[in-house]
Each structure stands twice: as structure tokens, then as C-alpha cells.
């Protein structure tokens, strides 16, 4: 792959169906495997995108996910028009969560989503406006063979 040959995938994340949350991440994981990307890189992308997708379903009634791949890195942009995050620093703290009890009973909402996304991406930026929505951009570098 060359820089010119950038691949782009776009997904609508359905916010009304928690059961199907993760289907975009599943498709990206499959595509990266087909492209021959290293398994540890694929897993990091899978973790950050899946956590992000779950967040969009829990908090923002869905949104759009765009994944761009070139020879150096994988960029994931998750954009929603949900309620926004009033205090991003607080939201980044492990254990902080505003998820409702029904989501916690499904195994999410432990306040580990954003911290996991930061931990497993090489770069993460959050832009959020209360009442307008949130955009999360994450980059995972593709390791170069020595």
C-alpha cells in the first residue's frame, strides 16, 4: 500500500439497537485482517473502535464512524450529535461514568471506555460541545518492520 492508496470506510452506527453495537468494528477488524495488518495493531484498532461505538450507542443515539487506512496509520473518526461531554477531563478518568444502570447490567458503563480508547490508540482527540455533539479522533500507527 502506498500513501496515495488511502482506503476509507464509512459506517452509520445505529443508536437504537444495543444488540447490534459493534458491527462496524467487526467489519473494520475483518477488513484489516484481509489487508494483512499485524494482529496486535488490528486488536488495538478493534478495542478503541468498539469502545467508541458502544459509547455512541449508549450516550448519543448513534452516529457516524469513518476509518481511513494508509501505509503509516489507521485513523478512526467517530462523530455523533448527542448531548456532548460537559467536562472531558472528568470523563477521561477511569471509573467515571454517566451510563444508566441498564447499560451497566449489560457489561458496559464502568467508566473504562474513554481510558481504554486513549490507552490503546497512539493519539486521541476529543471535541465536544454540549447540546451539539462529540467527535473523537483516534490514530493507531502501523508498526514498520525494521
Amino acid at each position: 500500500m502506498t500513501n496515495e492508496a488511502k482506503l476509507r470506510f464509512e459506517f452509520d452506527v445505529d443508536g437504537d439497537n444495543f444488540t447490534s453495537a459493534g458491527t462496524a468494528s467487526e467489519t473494520v477488524k475483518y477488513n484489516l485482517k484481509q489487508l494483512g495488518i499485524a494482529p496486535d495493531i488490528i486488536r488495538r484498532v478493534a478495542i478503541v473502535m468498539y469502545e467508541g461505538e458502544i459509547n455512541m450507542v449508549i450516550h448519543a443515539k448513534g452516529g457516524k464512524a469513518v476509518v481511513e487506512i494508509d501505509s503509516d496509520e489507521i485513523n478512526i473518526t467517530l462523530k455523533d450529535v448527542g448531548p456532548g461531554i460537559p467536562d472531558i477531563n472528568l470523563a477521561m478518568q477511569e471509573g467515571w461514568s454517566t451510563a444508566p444502570d441498564n447499560i451497566r447490567s449489560l457489561g458496559f458503563g464502568a467508566g473504562m471506555g474513554l481510558p481504554n480508547m486513549k490507552k490503546y490508540s497512539d493519539k486521541m482527540e476529543i471535541e465536544s460541545v454540549v447540546g451539539e455533539g462529540t467527535t473523537v479522533k483516534m490514530c493507531v500507527k502501523i508498526r514498520k518492520e525494521a
Binding site: 453495537a21 467487526e26 458502544i54 457489561g107
Partner: peptide, 16 residues
């Protein structure tokens, strides 16, 4: 796990 919803299987899938 003691949790039994489809996200368990999807999580397993993400993590191989």
C-alpha cells in the same frame, strides 16, 4: 463470565 448478552460474544470476537 456470568453475563449472557450478545455483546459478550462481540467482545470475544474483538479480542480473538
Amino acid at each position: 463470565t456470568g453475563l449472557a448478552n450478545p455483546q459478550v460474544v462481540r467482545t470475544a470476537l474483538m479480542m480473538d
